[in-house]
Design a binder for these strands. Structure first.
Length: 797
DNA sequence: GCACGATTTATACCA
DNA sequence: ACTGGTATAAATCGTGCG
């Protein structure tokens, strides 16, 4: 015992109220791997009061003092200098006793005469603490502490009390963190399992040491799963993980376990605090005291390349486990596999493969998640469930604190649409040697260059010398001093530059390199979200005119860049928002320099296509890269809501047109697929169409095929929730397409309507490309003769 | 009352 | 639940016809 300097990796912050005193608890791992808690008894909740300009501050101060109650007194009221949207002003800082009383005081103070607004009263106590102390989760710190007797209800090795201040440490390597992956299987003979009725039959777990543990219900009985749930809790307490990961665990595994435990009368004791049960918390995540519960699905959701995000597909995509190497059991057959003793082992293998996949995905995703947590300040268990807007907002709130800026309240606003980016009409046909030039981080750089933001906006007359006047919309922004957005964005971009520099000092296979690489990616994500955030009505720093100015400038800049390109004799084929597709030749280098000179923004060659094809449609093209790869952009082949077979055909068509220059070969392969379809030789899983359910089924105004299939799924005892993808196929018969859309699991191959797939999937997807080359629907549906090559079309369009 | 084009609703993509 | 711009399919509406 006694004073010491403790070095620790902070992973979470919470608080408890002891008597009338709030205690901040900092959860950390020290340099030798002890799990520790640092207790700070010295922090109190506070907020700010802004008064109308003509009001005597001392009168308001006195009135606020008079509001203090005995139960939870106001302990300090003082006038402090702050800034509101860049304008310096004196505000009243009100400090109280316990966080729970803040809301009441906020409401009471709002009614005091002369009070214009109460600010920062909606910031959670533990977040407030981290911001004020400069603490970030998933980072190393040093602090002067004194060891105290460990509170018996907290399951860590050592407990300290804070004595001095925190000092951030420049260590990029995290300590060894214990991760536990888990997955549950539930008995579901009637489709959707109900916690009141259906037991948990298997719980599979894997820890970061590679140990796999499977708990299964014993005997033939499906009753009384108390034992495995208790063993699950025991295992957690014994292994004592810092991070618990699951796949969709916030929406399924945890809620089910919590409900099932209630039914069985078991206390879900899995945290590091006695009686610290898991509960739903901010952004809909499940919070476990003293541990970080992370649902990997939250991060997977953001990977656009994966369309159907089932665990097995994601694990394969990330290179964790191949689908052919693992056991797969469809959800609607779990109870059958369990009941059939000869198949039960397969189910257990399935559960093991699932948990191994989950752990593998965690290894791929957690390093990024930890950097995102460290930058935004949101604890690891929250950062995934928070939307992009909230992540950036937390970063902004921290920045505001550093600049003494008051954090605006979240206010309800009406949605006001505004004009966005420009998309050029493509020159349709096949083009050879095309360079794609992109402005680097166009919108963030526009915000910096033109100092766009709510605090730099001027409504009075302002000359071109002092203000940036925005074309088209006429808004004006002060050139100096830098506004909030500009300052924040410059910091983000400079940090990214610095991190990328620092990366060079480490070998590519080192932990540090990987950590820094994830950090620079997280910095990029935050910078790129800034424009969208500014135009989001839910944002604290919402500023429509700012967002409008950014897109207006973007349109202006692209327009000027096109002029420069034409001056240099470069042919502009297409362009979208911040990109231009031009003929690739020597003037391109000159173009890049001229854009920099005249427009003050950087443009770079992003890609070179040996050959590229456009139809009349915007946002869609296929290109042959210099490496011989075919890029497909926008077309059906890259959409998740087309049948696999149609996407495959379109991809092959694209390849034979661009790489092989053969129209007839493309027609042949479409013919073949259509024949196979008619003969019923295409496997059913290539015919499934996946579409997302975006709102409650009863809210739909029209009954589209996926909604009709979803309703049928419900009738079968299945479950459909908002955000789920429904896989359906179209069966033979009369009537609308919707009336023939069925969940794929309920359909036999012989009931498939081949004509639907030919007329509504294969033909349109193929024709989208082939129509330009003079191919007709009829040709696709009958065996073709005659050979046409791309050469015959190369001088068209 | 019906056929068919126009409009509406819905999704997913691009940047 | 970060933005607007765009393509497309299927359902549904609305209108002209007789």
């Amino acid at each position: 015992m006694g004073l010491a300097v403790l070095m620790f990796y902070l992973y979470d912050v919470s608080y408890e109220v002891v008597g009338k005193e709030p205690h901040i608890l900092l959860w950390g791992i020290d340099e030798v791997g002890n799990r520790v808690v640092i207790r700070d008894r010295g922090f109190r909740p506070y907020f700010y009061v802004v008064t109308s300009s003509d009001v005597e501050l001392t009168r308001v101060v006195n009135e606020i003092r008079r509001l203090s109650s005995v139960k939870s007194p106001i302990i300090n009221v003082e006038v402090v200098p702050k800034k509101l949207f860049g304008r310096p002003l004196n505000v009243i800082k009100v400090t109280t006793t316990v966080p729970e009383s803040v809301r009441e005081y906020r409401e009471a103070i709002r009614k005091v005469g002369g009070v214009a607004d109460v600010l920062e009263a909606d910031i959670r106590f533990s977040m407030r603490y981290m911001i004020d102390k400069g603490l970030f989760p998933c980072s190393w710190f040093e602090a002067e502490v004194s060891e105290i007797r460990k509170h018996p209800s907290i399951a860590v090795t050592k407990e300290y009390e804070l004595v001095g201040e925190f000092k951030p440490l420049n260590i990029h390597k995290p300590p060894h963190i214990r991760v536990l992956a888990f997955d549950i299987e539930v008995y579901n003979p009637r489709g959707v399992p109900k916690p009141e009725r259906d037991p948990v039959i298997i719980i599979s777990m894997m820890n970061s040491e590679g140990d796999v543990k499977v708990l299964e219900l014993s005997g033939d009985t499906v009753k009384n799963d108390s034992r495995i749930i208790s063993e699950f809790m025991d295992y957690i307490q014994t292994y004592d993980p810092d991070v618990i990961v699951g796949y969709n665990s916030n929406r399924f595994d945890w809620p089910y376990l919590i409900e099932r435990s209630k039914v069985l009368g078991i206390r879900m004791d899995v945290g590091r605090v006695r009686d610290g049960v898991p509960r739903t918390s901010v952004y809909g995540h499940i919070s476990i005291p003293g541990r970080l519960n992370v649902d990997l699905f939250d991060f997977v959701e953001e990977i656009g390349e994966i369309k159907v995000k089932s665990l097995d597909v994601v694990a394969e995509y990330l290179g964790v486990m191949r689908r052919v190497d693992r056991v797969l059991v469809p959800w609607y057959e779990i109870s059958k596999y369990w009941d059939d003793l000869s198949k039960r082992e397969v189910l257990i293998r399935y559960a093991v493969d699932d948990v191994k996949s989950t752990m593998g995905i965690a290894e791929k995703i957690l390093p990024f998640a930890m950097q995102l947590s460290s930058l935004t300040g949101l604890p690891l268990d929250q950062v995934g469930s928070a939307s992009v807007g909230f992540r950036l907002e937390w970063y902004l709130m921290r920045s505001a604190y550093r600049y003494s800026e008051l954090i605006p309240n979240r206010v309800e606003r009406f949605y006001e649409p505004y004009k966005g980016a420009i998309v050029l009409e493509p020159v349709k046909g096949v083009h050879e040697n095309i360079a794609v030039l992109d402005f680097t981080s166009m919108y963030p750089n526009i915000m910096i260059k033109y100092n766009v933001g709510p605090d730099t906006f001027v409504e009075y007359d302002c000359s071109d010398e002092l203000c940036n006047v925005i074309p088209e919309v006429g808004y004006k922004f002060r050139k100096d001093p830098p506004g909030f957005y500009k300052a924040v964005l410059e910091t983000l971009l400079n940090m990214r530059k610095a991190v990328r520099e620092l990366m060079k000092e480490f070998p590519q296979d080192s932990v540090e390199y990987r950590v820094l690489d994830e950090r620079q990616k997280a910095l990029k994500v935050l910078a790129n979200a800034s424009y969208g955030y500014m135009g989001w009505v839910g944002a604290r720093w919402y500023f429509r005119q700012g967002a409008e100015a950014v897109t207006a400038l973007g349109r202006d800049i692209i327009g000027k860049a096109i002029e420069i390109a034409r001056e240099l004799g470069l042919r502009v084929i297409y362009g979208d928002t911040d990109s231009l597709f031009v003929s690739y030749g020597p003037p391109v280098e000159r173009f890049i320099d001229l854009v920099m000179d005249r427009l003050g923004l950087e443009i770079k060659v992003d890609k070179i296509y040996r050959r590229i094809f456009f139809t009349e449609a915007k946002k869609r093209y296929i290109g042959l890269t210099v490496d011989g790869l075919v890029d497909i952009v926008g077309f059906e082949a890259v959409r998740g809501d087309w049948a696999e077979i149609a996407k495959e055909v379109q991809e092959l068509v694209a390849y034979s047109i661009l790489a092989e220059g053969s129209v007839s070969k493309a027609v042949d392969l479409v013919n073949n697929v259509i024949r196979e379809l008619r003969e019923g030789r295409i496997p059913l899983d290539k015919l499934i169409i996946w579409k997302t359910i975006t709102k409650p089924l009863s809210d739909y105004e029209v009954s589209s095929p996926h909604v009709s299939a979803a309703r049928r799924l419900l009738d079968m005892g299945g479950r459909v929730e908002v955000g789920d993808k429904v896989g359906y196929v179209i069966v033979k018969g009369g009537g609308s397409i919707s009336s023939r859309a069925y969940p794929y699991i309920s359909v036999r191959a012989e009931d498939i309507d081949a004509d639907y797939y030919i007329d509504h999937q294969i033909v349109p997807a193929s024709l989208r490309i082939l129509e330009y080359f003079g191919v007709s629907e009829k040709q696709l549906k009958t065996i073709s003769r005659g050979v046409k090559t791309l050469f015959d079309f190369s001088r068209r369009g």
